[in-house]
Design a protein around this nucleic acid. Sequence first.
DNA 1: CTGTTAGCGCATTCAC
DNA 2: GTGAATGCGCTAACAG
Lengths: 342, 342
Amino acid sequence: MKKPTLIDVARIADVSAITVSRTLRDPERVSESTRIKVQAAVEELGYVPDSAASTLASKRSTVIGMLVPSFSNNVFSQVLAGAYDAIEGTKYSIQIGNTRYSALKEEEMVRRFLTMKPAGMIVAGVDQTEMTRKLLKATDCPVVQVMDIADDPIDSIVGFSNFQAAAEATYYMIQEGFRRIAFVGTRMDPRTQMRMAGYRSMMEKSGLYDPALQITTQIKSSVEIGRHLLGDILSTVPDCDAVFCNNDDVAVGIAFECERRNIRIPQDMGICGFNDLGTTSQMNPAVTSVHTPRVEIGKVAAQIVIDANAKIETRSEKIYDLGFELKKRASTNLRGAAFRSR
Amino acid sequence: MKKPTLIDVARIADVSAITVSRTLRDPERVSESTRIKVQAAVEELGYVPDSAASTLASKRSTVIGMLVPSFSNNVFSQVLAGAYDAIEGTKYSIQIGNTRYSALKEEEMVRRFLTMKPAGMIVAGVDQTEMTRKLLKATDCPVVQVMDIADDPIDSIVGFSNFQAAAEATYYMIQEGFRRIAFVGTRMDPRTQMRMAGYRSMMEKSGLYDPALQITTQIKSSVEIGRHLLGDILSTVPDCDAVFCNNDDVAVGIAFECERRNIRIPQDMGICGFNDLGTTSQMNPAVTSVHTPRVEIGKVAAQIVIDANAKIETRSEKIYDLGFELKKRASTNLRGAAFRSR
DNA sequence: CTGTTAGCGCATTCAC
DNA sequence: GTGAATGCGCTAACAG
């Protein structure tokens, strides 16, 4: 007993194969009576379309290609989760590629994905190689960049401004009275670099910029590396009075190490994280962070692909800025802490 | 300028299409001279095989289907990461389905995946529905269950014993001198239930079992829920002297809340987490946890699928117990703490 | 609104 | 070791 095909369904419904095909793909285009007959036959046989055959014949698959730089980074698992939410119940599926933060690897994967005629492509960030941009511009499937914002997207872009988010957080810390604010950057991927630029711009504007305050490493972010980095900071810039971290786990590590060394938060050291991954809000004292709409970004990106394939007219603008939210917590509340410690 | 096909390559290499096909899939089966000609032609044209056509003709795809219960759970992102490591550079790709901890949804997704003739299926745990087991047993592709161990796998199984891991952690805490050890369980998925069973078995064996010590909720685990649960525990079983949590984030939340309430760790409250996700080891005091080989599990599972497809004879046993490791840290070091506090 | 014809690009089967 | 014929299951393009 082998898998039923369109022809089997057609025979039972007493129509031609192509009619069955149409009924399944676009029920509006057949008469109601045929639709009912066909649907009954499909039900009876438990027919499920063969996607390989469909892809081959139509030169268009139902696979959405999604390229992320990392799995270990929580941020991207959440973007993925959002995208999977969006395709739930649709005919689309997602195939993921791991670029490992390499633009060249990304280019190679884009090539590979494009050969399978994807329904859409979702890529992280805006730092593609020239060739990748060219390939993605030339393809006829929708392309969505995620996790940042730029003026000149390849096609659509969904995210928030890493530059602005960092600038706003930095501004807030300055307002709170911090002066020697360090930027702590791990991995130094393009989004972290944008954050550093936002930080720098605001520090310069306030006459507080000092290159020595930029502490960076190529190592990936983790709670452990955060702890080590506090040591580096204190030996390099002993008068540092606050840290702005490119990711929450680094901020958590720094907070733990401050506690261990009896460095008071925020009186001796202000701390601000990025992404608001869930732990910072629960600490003692709670750690300030920039909340980012990761799940929403994934959801919107996948929805753009789905809508474009259905030719649904969506918002004409191709730039979807989903914003961010600075979560002000005790770890940077210097004015409040000064007041309380009297 | 359209995509080159096998025939284009064949023309340039001056052989037939089928020879090109063979050269690409099994270079050993053609003579060296043809192999060189063909490979040169492939290179020249930048030929990339069409996977839809190949799937249709061979009734076997290069997609590995992988069903996970959740994306937000770090544990599964790491299993995914391991699986992606294993397929790197191979012809295989992975398609993920999110079962959202529902066995029925899983069944539906298994059905859907099987229609695409996958190269293999990887599913989480051992609690499939009867129908899912039947479907997976009947398929001819390799099936790998991950994240637990059982005697009667569908096909292969890669994981560790959640029961044993919990029993061992519980035994260790009892040895340390804890008596009123609570089990804190979130989500209550099958693996958490196995952990609870392991805990219970050891508590019973020691004459310490008390159902009131089992604190469970259907809510998913998070640092925040951990904090709330400590309150529940203390009001339900005020004499509780330790907690064994089903996941690290819950343990972290409980540690934070202890700190906030000036409950000393481990003197007043011992804490043990599960999975060793990275934060527990960095805390003050460091929190004990059961380290689980998540990345390795994913990697081995995908490798099993790859090897089975290549007909490479692997270990004949189908059960791969990758073990676990109890990381004993300060949060449960009651004997050491008692000594130091003199 | 429905059917006919003709492939999509590749792998299987059987020759040689 | 290599090739010819055939079909996988579906859909595009065109009729009617």
